[in-house]
Amino acid sequence: MRSRRRHPLLVPVLLCALAVLIARPTSATGDSDAPGGLNAEVVRLYDEASLATQQYEAGRRAAEVQRGRAQRLERLLARERQDIAALHGDLGRIARAQYRNGGGLPHTAQMLLADSPEELMRGQRAVWQADLAVNNAVTKSRRAEARLAADEEKAASAWQVLHRRNGELAEIKRGIEKKLEEAQWTLQGQADASVAAGACRGAVRLDQPRTRFAQPWVAPVETYELSSGFGSGGDRWASRHTGQDFAVDIGTPVRSVGAGRVVKVSCGGAFGIEVVVKHAGGYYTQYAHLAAVTVEQGERVAAGQWVGQSGTTGNSTGPHLHFEVRLTPQLGSGVDPREWLAKRGVRL
């Protein structure tokens, strides 16, 4: 069974760790009726959920460090208890010896019957040493017991503080994730309505990240898991899969993989809401199943610039980004996106 006892020296370390976590994420209150309000709210909630996750993970790592130190403390406390037991044993032996010898009578008799100053001094020294041994044993025992009790109380309190803080962070994260899910599906509902009407809403002008990419090519999303790959088979496609899918949540910012010009923004068909960008060298990249677009047709874009937000519009079984690289703007001229990006220094 895990003990709750911890070392008192961990208290200041714990408090320092918690100080880093004091700043809590605030709830997003963007006006979803304003142009781009809902889209921006989703992005903000992503950032806040990410921050809360980082804070929670920092608390969890601090708890792991605390646990390792606690295990070392348990060994220290065990030694302290052994020392206390030994001190109690010493007191017991002294008491038994005094009982067998009639208390302090033999030493007193030696002093009364002493024939010389030397014998008198030896008797006095024996009495003094016996009293000193008892006093030292009692003092050490009491100090050790007091130190052990203080260690257990302070360490238990520190552990409770960390546990409570982690619980608070987890609750904050759950709240943000609930708001994010509601905003995501509201955004998706608006996207589905656009697709049904066959007309895209205007570009949503979100605040672009200030990141400046040193390389000319980037991945279409920052954080992802790869799912269906180029050329794979499946019931959802007439023949073979024509692109690379990235499993991401609704509202995830989608980036142009390189500099180019937007040649198509569409809201109908199997791809749902899609954006097609033409790059130097005659290649085209497609970003499909979006929930919203952040660019207009004819607009020039830079590497890493947001062109939309991921969704699940069109012929899609769940939230993801469908990414293609083509020789023409039309379907049917696709090349393997992973190989194409790898030749440009981007490995997925």
Rank of each mutant, 00 (worst) to 15 (best):
G318V: 07
E339S: 14
T312A: 15
G314S: 09
V295D: 08
T294N: 13
Q330I: 00
G311V: 04
S316F: 12
L327T: 11
Q309W: 01
H320T: 05
S333V: 04
A280P: 01
Y283T: 03
V335G: 11
Q330P: 01
A292I: 00
G314F: 04
T317K: 03
T294V: 14
A292L: 05
A291D: 04
W306T: 12
Q330R: 08
S316V: 10
R326I: 08
H279F: 10
V325C: 12
H279I: 05
T328M: 02
V293N: 03
G334N: 15
D336I: 13
G282Y: 05
E299T: 14
Q297E: 14
S333Y: 12
V293C: 05
T312Q: 15
T312F: 09
T317G: 11
E339N: 10
P337Q: 06
A292S: 13
T312V: 00
P319C: 08
F323K: 15
H289F: 15
R300H: 04
A302F: 13
V325H: 06
Y283E: 03
V307L: 15
P319N: 09
S333A: 14
V293Y: 04
Q305K: 00
V295Q: 07
E339V: 14
G332V: 02
P337V: 10
G298T: 04
G282E: 01
L290E: 00
L327G: 15
V301S: 11
Q286C: 10
A302T: 14
G332S: 03
T312D: 13
G318S: 11
V295N: 11
G304S: 05
A292G: 06
G308F: 07
H279T: 10
E299Q: 15
